[in-house]
Amino acid sequence: MKNIVLFGPPGAGKGTQAERLKEKYGLVHISTGDVFRYNIKNATELGTLAKSFMDKGNLVPDEVTIKMLNAEVEKHPNAAGFIFDGFPRTDAQAKALDELLESKDTQVSGMVALEVDDEILVQRLLERGKSSGRPDDANETVIRDRIKVYYKQTAPLKNYYQAQDKYYGVDGEGSIDEITDRLSAEFDKL
């Protein structure tokens, strides 16, 4: 089973690339952002709770995120593997993911990180905001705050996977096809 953590700041292209790579490798794509939006749209108890944090630009607490993630994994008992997009974001979440996967006799194969310059991230998100309808993509101040939160709270997770020799950085700039090719080269090694 191939389980990949697709990592990078907001606007790095994780969702776009995950959609391409899930087809190529036959993996299930679990985007915590999509899972949150589904739960929020359907006004589930966890969704309402998650929304209260997301509206402020904060990370959703681990307990809430892990419960949502576990429910998604459980929906795919025969999966060949997963691409986790937007999760884990903290060492505690990474440990919880390890425990979840171990309970299914598997593990994280690697963290593949898209590395993109901050100014490119801002422009990508502002552009996405024009069509996505997401208020967090339409305001440059909110975008820059999200990027700061990523560097402060999420980027240190890189060390967790480096310590296990499971971290792979990939240049996330250029055309979508070029980035897919670079990511595929790393996925093929895992």
Score class of each variant (00 low, 15 high):
3 N>A: 05
5 V>R: 06
6 L>K: 11
7 F>H: 13
8 G>T: 12
10 P>K: 08
12 A>H: 04
12 A>I: 06
12 A>C: 12
13 G>Y: 09
14 K>S: 12
17 Q>K: 09
18 A>Y: 09
19 E>Q: 14
19 E>N: 13
21 L>E: 02
24 K>A: 14
24 K>S: 12
25 Y>L: 07
26 G>W: 10
26 G>F: 11
33 G>V: 11
37 R>Q: 13
38 Y>F: 07
39 N>D: 09
43 A>Q: 15
44 T>A: 04
44 T>C: 07
45 E>F: 00
45 E>V: 09
45 E>H: 02
50 A>K: 02
53 F>D: 03
55 D>K: 09
55 D>T: 13
55 D>F: 00
56 K>E: 13
57 G>I: 06
57 G>A: 02
59 L>H: 02
60 V>R: 09
61 P>R: 07
62 D>L: 05
64 V>L: 11
64 V>M: 11
69 L>W: 01
70 N>F: 00
71 A>Y: 02
72 E>C: 13
72 E>G: 05
75 K>C: 08
77 P>A: 09
78 N>I: 01
79 A>W: 10
80 A>I: 00
81 G>W: 08
82 F>N: 11
88 P>Q: 04
89 R>N: 09
90 T>W: 02
91 D>S: 14
91 D>I: 15
92 A>D: 10
92 A>F: 02
93 Q>M: 04
94 A>I: 07
95 K>S: 10
95 K>H: 07
98 D>C: 05
98 D>A: 05
100 L>R: 05
103 S>W: 01
103 S>E: 03
104 K>V: 01
107 Q>H: 14
107 Q>M: 09
110 G>I: 08
111 M>H: 04
114 L>T: 03
114 L>I: 04
116 V>S: 10
117 D>H: 14
118 D>Y: 00
118 D>E: 15
119 E>G: 05
121 L>E: 01
121 L>Q: 01
122 V>D: 04
123 Q>P: 00
125 L>P: 04
125 L>N: 06
128 R>F: 09
130 K>N: 13
131 S>A: 13
131 S>L: 12
133 G>D: 11
133 G>W: 08
134 R>T: 12
134 R>Y: 10
134 R>N: 14
135 P>Q: 05
136 D>F: 04
136 D>C: 01
139 N>M: 06
141 T>P: 00
142 V>A: 15
144 R>I: 10
145 D>K: 15
145 D>M: 11
146 R>F: 03
155 A>N: 09
157 L>I: 14
157 L>P: 07
158 K>D: 12
158 K>C: 05
160 Y>W: 14
164 Q>T: 07
165 D>L: 08
166 K>R: 13
168 Y>R: 15
169 G>A: 15
171 D>T: 08
173 E>N: 06
176 I>K: 15
177 D>E: 15
180 T>V: 12
182 R>M: 10
183 L>A: 10
183 L>F: 09
184 S>G: 07
184 S>F: 01
185 A>E: 15
187 F>P: 06
187 F>I: 11
188 D>L: 13
188 D>N: 15
190 L>P: 02
